Amino acid sequence: MTAIQYTPEDVGVVDLATLASMSGLEFLQAIARGELPGPPIAKTLGFNLAEVEEGRAVFISEPGLHHYNPIGTVHAGFTATLLDSCMACAVQSTLPKGTGYTTMEFKISLLRPMTKETGPVRAEGTLLSRGRRAATAEGRLTDAQGKLLAHATTTCLIFGL
Rank of each mutant, 00 (worst) to 15 (best):
A135N: 05
C156P: 08
L28H: 01
I108Q: 09
G64M: 03
M104L: 14
M104G: 12
T142D: 11
A123C: 08
K97A: 10
L128I: 13
K116G: 11
L25G: 00
T99K: 10
G38C: 10
V58L: 15
A137S: 14
E35N: 14
Q29E: 15
A32L: 03
I108G: 08
P120T: 12
T142M: 13
T7F: 09
E62H: 12
D10N: 14
S23I: 02
V91C: 05
R132N: 12
R33D: 13
F59P: 01
L128F: 01
R140Q: 13
D84L: 04
L128K: 10
A32M: 11
R132C: 00
K147V: 11
S93Q: 00
L49G: 03
T155K: 11
Q29S: 11
F47Q: 05
K107M: 05
L128M: 12
G12H: 04
F159E: 04
L110G: 02
G125A: 02
P40V: 02
H66M: 11
R122L: 12
V14Y: 02
E124W: 05
A17Y: 04
I41S: 08
F106W: 10
K97V: 08
L19R: 14
T2Q: 14
L36I: 01
R132P: 10
L83K: 03
S23P: 03
A90Q: 07
L45T: 05
E105V: 07
L95P: 07
A50E: 13
E26R: 04
D15A: 05
D10P: 03
V13L: 14
E9V: 06
E124Y: 06
N48D: 15
T136D: 06
K43W: 09
T102F: 06
A42I: 02
K97R: 15
S85E: 09
L16P: 09
K147T: 12
T154D: 11
E117Q: 13
E54P: 10
L111D: 00
V14E: 08
S21Q: 00
R132L: 12
V58H: 04
C89S: 13
A90C: 08
T115S: 15
G139L: 01
A42E: 10
I41R: 04
L127N: 03
H151C: 13
L82T: 02
L110Y: 14
E51L: 08
K107A: 07
D84M: 00
P37M: 03
C89E: 12
E54W: 09
